[in-house]
């Protein structure tokens, strides 16, 4: 089992292989396509995180003391970034999720996507993931 920090390092290493933006985005798009989808009937208002540009649905639960997240988005690049967040935060204790410093996003050059002006719902999604974790503590 990797720690949260090891998982972040793993993502950073994976992205360091890409020479240019295009390969990076192609990889994100692939990750987005592989992300398990949320069933349409579960795409309800309470799971929806509204962004101005793209929308995100998030479902969370806890099993054996570890957080379980499933998410989806209508935009594929947003989905790719979501899949990275889930890879890092899934199977972590609520405490580690709540206090996680997700520095990998900055280090792989995707921090622009987390600025509030992007309005793609990602920033709100991270907040929501941490809130869900806090509720479990």
């Amino acid at each position: 089992m990797m720690t949260l920090e090891e998982k972040q390092q793993d993502v950073i290493e994976e992205f360091s292989l890409f020479e240019d933006w295009m390969e990076k985005y192609e990889h994100l798009i692939e990750l987005g396509k592989d992300l398990p989808l949320i069933d349409p009937e579960k795409k309800t208002e309470d799971r929806l995180i509204q962004g101005c540009q793209s929308q995100v649905w998030l479902e969370s639960g806890i099993s054996d003391g570890k957080m379980q997240f499933t998410a989806d988005s209508d935009a594929i690049i947003t989905k790719g970034i979501i899949s990275l967040l889930i890879r890092v935060l899934n199977q972590e204790s609520p405490e580690s999720v709540a206090k996680a410093d997700l520095h990998f996003i900055r280090e792989i050059g995707l921090h622009d996507h987390l600025s509030p002006t992007r309005s793609n719902g990602l920033l709100s999604m991270i907040k929501r993931m941490k809130m869900e974790a806090l509720r479990q503590i």
Partner: peptide
Amino acid sequence: IHPFDLGTILDQQGVAVRTGH
């Protein structure tokens, strides 16, 4: 293709457009 995705990839190529509603 979602407009946000198109806008993001266009931006990476130096093309500024507006996407969304």
